[in-house]
Design a protein around this nucleic acid. Structure first.
Lengths: 142, 142
DNA sequence: TCCGGTTTGTTGCACATGCAACATAATGCG
DNA sequence: CGCATTATGTTGCATGTGCAACAAACCGGA
């Protein structure tokens, strides 16, 4: 009684090998330019495009990051004054997160390097149609 | 002059979110049954299907794992007597790696749990054609 | 043959992560 | 209301990972 198809297995292995490898490559590109890790960019970008302050819980949900991980990641960003934590009015447990001016500036400086790394690692290796298909397939796995 | 397409960016973000999440899910399934991490299975399986002893270098290449990471991963597997390191005849620096009987037994016991986790996280969410496409697209990114 | 450069593998150290336990606040049910 | 349950966020501890430096062996050209 095998409940796993051979094709599914191949897709899994490809994912297992390729995804971490790509992430390391992009991470290395950022580090090579003296920038902080990918995760920092992610937080900054999500906060910036949210427009309004976000609950820590909601940010974690969007980034698919565990609470205890996010908690300490945000500590580091806050220490560098890239984000701010304000007490939450509705819920005394939570915090409202917002990106600072310095945070926006850093994100903007990082973007060209990040974009070039993504282009090299992914974009230039796929046609537009292929990239679109890939995105759609991955989204089905959420 | 943006060298990164919008579609490529979407694919990247999907990969960044989905892949780690899937890995954590599968990892959790193994842990829940008292089994060692995914990486252990990977090593055991690669050694078993290789049929013959493998150089550490070659294993690292197939698994896309960094040398210093692999080195310590293998230490742990060796401590548990799941693999063996034999001095390499051709090259006094290297080792030949082989899976032990206990290693094969463990891998076999892990497989049903692993397969079920992959089926739940990936296989059942895609048609066969989709899984095939996904595997092919990811392979293009190596 | 000799010697510089490369390849292979390991390790000390700092840092990041997972887990379990915790503190505090909100929620909901009797 | 009162109290158990759930939700949110933090932290101590053990473990895993990245980096840089290292040791040892191999390779190849002069």
């Amino acid at each position: 009684m095998q409940q796993l198809s051979k094709t599914g297995e191949r897709a899994w292995i490809a994912l297992l090998r390729v995804a971490p490898h790509l992430m390391e490559t992009v991470e290395a590109a950022l580090k090579a330019e003296g920038f902080p890790p990918l995760a920092w960019y992610d937080v900054l970008w999500e906060l910036e495009r949210a427009g309004a302050p976000l609950r820590q819980r909601d940010l974690g949900e969007r980034l698919l990051v565990a609470r205890y991980n996010l908690s300490r990641l945000l500590d580091r960003l806050e220490t560098d004054r890239l984000i701010e934590r304000q007490p939450c009015v509705d819920d005394a447990r939570g915090f409202m997160l917002s990106i600072t001016r310095a945070g926006k500036a850093l994100r903007q400086k990082m973007w060209p390097v990040y974009a070039e790394a993504i282009a090299a690692a992914l974009d230039r290796k796929l046609t537009t149609a292929e990239a679109d298909t890939l995105a759609k397939l991955l989204d089905k796995l959420r």
